[in-house]
Simulated assay, not measured.
Amino acid sequence: MNGPDAAEPPIRLLIADDHPVVRNGLRGAFADDPGITVVGEASDGRQAVARAVRGDVDVVLMDLRMPVLDGVEATAQLRERAPDVRVLVLTTFDGETDVLPAVAAGATGYLLKDAGTDELAAAVRAARRGEAVLAPAAAGHLMGQVRRPAPPVLTARELEVLALVAGGTSNREAARSLFISEASVKTHLLHVYGKLGVRDRAAAVGEAYRRGLLPATPP
Protein backbone atom coordinates (compact mmCIF):
# COMPACT_ATOMS: atom_id res chain seq x y z
CA MET A 1 0.00 0.00 0.00
CA ASN A 2 1.05 3.50 -0.66
CA GLY A 3 1.71 5.55 2.41
CA PRO A 4 -0.18 8.75 3.13
CA ASP A 5 1.07 12.22 2.52
CA ALA A 6 3.26 13.04 5.49
CA ALA A 7 1.35 16.31 5.97
CA GLU A 8 -1.98 14.52 6.41
CA PRO A 9 -3.11 12.76 9.59
CA PRO A 10 -4.31 9.16 9.33
CA ILE A 11 -7.88 8.59 8.19
CA ARG A 12 -10.01 7.58 11.16
CA LEU A 13 -12.06 4.54 10.23
CA LEU A 14 -15.09 2.97 11.93
CA ILE A 15 -16.04 -0.63 11.05
CA ALA A 16 -19.76 -1.46 11.34
CA ASP A 17 -20.70 -5.13 10.90
CA ASP A 18 -22.64 -7.55 13.08
CA HIS A 19 -20.17 -10.40 12.52
CA PRO A 20 -17.08 -10.28 14.80
CA VAL A 21 -15.05 -12.36 12.35
CA VAL A 22 -15.69 -9.84 9.57
CA ARG A 23 -14.80 -6.93 11.84
CA ASN A 24 -11.58 -8.62 12.90
CA GLY A 25 -10.66 -9.35 9.30
CA LEU A 26 -11.24 -5.76 8.25
CA ARG A 27 -9.28 -4.42 11.20
CA GLY A 28 -6.41 -6.70 10.23
CA ALA A 29 -6.55 -5.49 6.63
CA PHE A 30 -5.64 -1.97 7.77
CA ALA A 31 -3.20 -2.94 10.52
CA ASP A 32 -0.10 -2.22 8.43
CA ASP A 33 -1.39 0.94 6.76
CA PRO A 34 -0.02 4.05 8.53
CA GLY A 35 -2.51 6.23 6.67
CA ILE A 36 -5.63 4.56 8.07
CA THR A 37 -6.42 4.05 11.76
CA VAL A 38 -9.36 1.93 12.91
CA VAL A 39 -10.77 3.99 15.78
CA GLY A 40 -13.76 1.81 16.60
CA GLU A 41 -16.19 -0.96 15.76
CA ALA A 42 -19.98 -1.29 15.86
CA SER A 43 -22.14 -4.41 15.72
CA ASP A 44 -25.37 -2.68 14.65
CA GLY A 45 -26.49 0.47 12.91
CA ARG A 46 -27.47 2.32 16.06
CA GLN A 47 -24.02 1.78 17.57
CA ALA A 48 -22.43 2.95 14.33
CA VAL A 49 -24.36 6.21 14.34
CA ALA A 50 -23.70 6.85 18.03
CA ARG A 51 -19.98 6.22 17.59
CA ALA A 52 -19.60 8.22 14.39
CA VAL A 53 -21.32 11.37 15.62
CA ARG A 54 -18.75 11.78 18.40
CA GLY A 55 -16.58 13.69 15.96
CA ASP A 56 -13.50 11.49 15.64
CA VAL A 57 -14.53 9.39 12.62
CA ASP A 58 -13.80 10.23 8.98
CA VAL A 59 -15.07 7.13 7.16
CA VAL A 60 -17.46 4.31 8.10
CA LEU A 61 -17.32 0.87 6.49
CA MET A 62 -21.01 0.01 6.77
CA ASP A 63 -22.62 -3.40 6.41
CA LEU A 64 -26.21 -3.24 5.09
CA ARG A 65 -27.73 -6.16 6.96
CA MET A 66 -27.43 -5.38 10.67
CA PRO A 67 -29.79 -5.69 13.64
CA VAL A 68 -31.49 -2.86 15.52
CA LEU A 69 -30.86 -0.36 12.69
CA ASP A 70 -29.91 -1.46 9.19
CA GLY A 71 -27.10 0.07 7.15
CA VAL A 72 -29.37 2.12 4.90
CA GLU A 73 -31.14 3.84 7.79
CA ALA A 74 -27.86 4.29 9.68
CA THR A 75 -26.37 5.93 6.59
CA ALA A 76 -29.37 8.25 6.28
CA GLN A 77 -29.06 9.27 9.93
CA LEU A 78 -25.35 9.96 9.54
CA ARG A 79 -26.03 12.17 6.55
CA GLU A 80 -28.27 14.29 8.79
CA ARG A 81 -26.28 14.17 12.03
CA ALA A 82 -22.68 13.95 10.80
CA PRO A 83 -22.60 15.09 7.16
CA ASP A 84 -18.79 15.21 7.06
CA VAL A 85 -18.53 11.49 7.79
CA ARG A 86 -18.20 9.41 4.61
CA VAL A 87 -19.95 6.03 4.39
CA LEU A 88 -18.67 3.12 2.35
CA VAL A 89 -21.23 0.34 2.10
CA LEU A 90 -19.70 -3.12 2.36
CA THR A 91 -21.73 -6.20 1.42
CA THR A 92 -21.55 -9.71 0.00
CA PHE A 93 -23.77 -8.51 -2.87
CA ASP A 94 -25.50 -11.92 -3.04
CA GLY A 95 -28.67 -10.77 -4.76
CA GLU A 96 -28.43 -7.50 -2.88
CA THR A 97 -31.31 -5.11 -3.62
CA ASP A 98 -30.21 -2.16 -1.51
CA VAL A 99 -27.58 -0.69 -3.83
CA LEU A 100 -29.69 2.28 -4.89
CA PRO A 101 -31.30 2.87 -1.46
CA ALA A 102 -27.84 2.94 0.13
CA VAL A 103 -26.54 5.46 -2.39
CA ALA A 104 -29.73 7.51 -2.10
CA ALA A 105 -29.34 7.50 1.69
CA GLY A 106 -25.95 9.16 1.30
CA ALA A 107 -23.36 6.43 0.88
CA THR A 108 -20.20 7.61 -0.87
CA GLY A 109 -19.41 4.17 -2.25
CA TYR A 110 -20.32 0.53 -2.51
CA LEU A 111 -17.79 -2.31 -2.14
CA LEU A 112 -17.88 -6.08 -1.89
CA LYS A 113 -16.63 -7.86 1.22
CA ASP A 114 -14.23 -9.93 -0.87
CA ALA A 115 -12.38 -6.80 -2.03
CA GLY A 116 -8.60 -7.00 -1.66
CA THR A 117 -6.65 -5.05 0.93
CA ASP A 118 -5.31 -2.56 -1.59
CA GLU A 119 -8.77 -2.00 -3.06
CA LEU A 120 -10.23 -1.39 0.39
CA ALA A 121 -7.49 1.07 1.33
CA ALA A 122 -7.83 2.94 -1.96
CA ALA A 123 -11.60 3.13 -1.53
CA VAL A 124 -11.30 4.51 2.01
CA ARG A 125 -8.90 7.20 0.81
CA ALA A 126 -11.14 8.08 -2.13
CA ALA A 127 -14.18 8.26 0.13
CA ARG A 128 -12.35 10.58 2.53
CA ARG A 129 -11.70 12.89 -0.44
CA GLY A 130 -15.40 12.82 -1.26
CA GLU A 131 -14.98 10.73 -4.40
CA ALA A 132 -17.60 8.18 -5.42
CA VAL A 133 -16.51 4.55 -5.17
CA LEU A 134 -18.46 1.70 -6.79
CA ALA A 135 -17.41 -1.93 -7.17
CA PRO A 136 -17.62 -3.01 -10.83
CA ALA A 137 -19.90 -5.92 -9.90
CA ALA A 138 -22.37 -3.51 -8.33
CA ALA A 139 -22.31 -0.98 -11.15
CA GLY A 140 -24.49 -2.99 -13.52
CA HIS A 141 -27.01 -3.73 -10.80
CA LEU A 142 -27.14 -0.07 -9.85
CA MET A 143 -27.74 0.96 -13.46
CA GLY A 144 -30.55 -1.56 -13.69
CA GLN A 145 -32.25 0.02 -10.68
CA VAL A 146 -31.70 3.54 -11.98
CA ARG A 147 -33.37 2.67 -15.29
CA ARG A 148 -36.55 1.63 -13.45
CA PRO A 149 -38.68 4.25 -11.70
CA ALA A 150 -37.44 4.00 -8.15
CA PRO A 151 -39.96 3.94 -5.30
CA PRO A 152 -39.30 6.03 -2.19
CA VAL A 153 -36.53 4.57 -0.06
CA LEU A 154 -38.32 3.05 2.92
CA THR A 155 -36.38 0.82 5.28
CA ALA A 156 -37.63 -2.62 6.27
CA ARG A 157 -38.66 -1.30 9.68
CA GLU A 158 -40.53 1.65 8.16
CA LEU A 159 -42.43 -0.76 5.92
CA GLU A 160 -43.30 -2.92 8.93
CA VAL A 161 -44.66 0.09 10.80
CA LEU A 162 -46.54 1.29 7.74
CA ALA A 163 -48.15 -2.14 7.20
CA LEU A 164 -49.35 -2.21 10.81
CA VAL A 165 -50.72 1.31 10.52
CA ALA A 166 -52.54 0.32 7.31
CA GLY A 167 -54.22 -2.46 9.28
CA GLY A 168 -55.54 0.02 11.83
CA THR A 169 -52.93 -0.60 14.51
CA SER A 170 -52.25 2.20 16.99
CA ASN A 171 -48.73 3.43 17.71
CA ARG A 172 -48.76 1.67 21.08
CA GLU A 173 -49.93 -1.61 19.56
CA ALA A 174 -47.34 -1.35 16.78
CA ALA A 175 -44.62 -0.78 19.36
CA ARG A 176 -45.64 -3.89 21.28
CA SER A 177 -45.85 -5.96 18.12
CA LEU A 178 -42.38 -4.91 16.94
CA PHE A 179 -40.78 -4.89 20.42
CA ILE A 180 -39.73 -1.26 20.10
CA SER A 181 -40.72 1.90 21.92
CA GLU A 182 -43.73 3.99 21.00
CA ALA A 183 -41.36 6.89 20.40
CA SER A 184 -39.50 4.77 17.82
CA VAL A 185 -42.78 4.05 16.04
CA LYS A 186 -43.52 7.77 15.87
CA THR A 187 -40.01 8.44 14.54
CA HIS A 188 -40.41 5.82 11.82
CA LEU A 189 -43.75 7.31 10.83
CA LEU A 190 -42.24 10.80 10.60
CA HIS A 191 -39.57 9.40 8.27
CA VAL A 192 -42.30 7.76 6.17
CA TYR A 193 -44.25 11.02 5.96
CA GLY A 194 -41.18 12.87 4.77
CA LYS A 195 -40.26 10.27 2.16
CA LEU A 196 -43.80 10.03 0.79
CA GLY A 197 -44.45 13.76 0.95
CA VAL A 198 -47.51 13.47 3.23
CA ARG A 199 -48.53 14.82 6.62
CA ASP A 200 -50.58 12.14 8.36
CA ARG A 201 -51.19 8.41 8.74
CA ALA A 202 -54.14 8.17 6.37
CA ALA A 203 -52.32 10.00 3.60
CA ALA A 204 -49.22 7.85 4.13
CA VAL A 205 -51.22 4.63 3.79
CA GLY A 206 -53.05 5.87 0.71
CA GLU A 207 -49.82 7.02 -0.95
CA ALA A 208 -48.10 3.74 -0.08
CA TYR A 209 -50.86 1.74 -1.78
CA ARG A 210 -50.79 4.06 -4.78
CA ARG A 211 -47.05 3.56 -5.21
CA GLY A 212 -47.18 -0.18 -4.69
CA LEU A 213 -45.23 -0.14 -1.41
CA LEU A 214 -47.87 -2.24 0.33
CA PRO A 215 -48.73 -5.62 -1.20
CA ALA A 216 -52.54 -5.60 -1.09
CA THR A 217 -55.25 -3.15 -2.00
CA PRO A 218 -56.75 -1.20 0.86
CA PRO A 219 -60.03 -2.49 2.32
Rank of each mutant, 00 (worst) to 15 (best):
T169H: 14
R86F: 05
H188I: 03
S170W: 02
V60W: 05
P10G: 11
P151H: 08
V72L: 09
F30N: 07
V153W: 06
A174R: 09
R23I: 03
A48G: 04
R129T: 12
A82W: 00
E207V: 06
G3F: 07
A121I: 12
H141Q: 15
P20D: 10
P152I: 02
Q47D: 06
T187L: 14
L142V: 04
E96M: 00
R211I: 09
G3H: 12
V165C: 13
A7Q: 08
L78V: 00
G35M: 12
Y209P: 07
V185S: 02
E8W: 10
E182H: 13
E96W: 02
P34D: 11
L100M: 15
L134F: 07
D94R: 12
V57R: 01
G28T: 11
A156S: 08
L14T: 03
T37C: 14
A216S: 15
A50G: 09
L213N: 07
L112K: 04
R12H: 02
L213R: 10
A203R: 08
E96Q: 06
E158Q: 10
R12Q: 09
G197L: 15
L178R: 10
A121K: 15
E41S: 09
V57T: 06
G28R: 11
G71K: 03
R46T: 02
G25T: 04
I36N: 08
A7F: 00
V57E: 01
G3A: 14
V60A: 05
P67D: 00
K195T: 09
A7E: 08
D56Y: 05
A6L: 11
S43L: 10
P151I: 02
N171M: 08
R201D: 04
S170E: 01
T217E: 15
A6F: 07
R129P: 13
R46L: 15
A166G: 02
A126N: 05
D84N: 10
V198G: 04
L90R: 06
L69V: 09
A82D: 00
A156F: 03
E173C: 11
D98P: 07
L159F: 07
G106P: 04
P152T: 08
R81H: 06
G116Q: 14
R176T: 11
E182Y: 08
P67V: 05
Q77W: 12
R157K: 13
R125A: 09
I36K: 03
L213G: 13
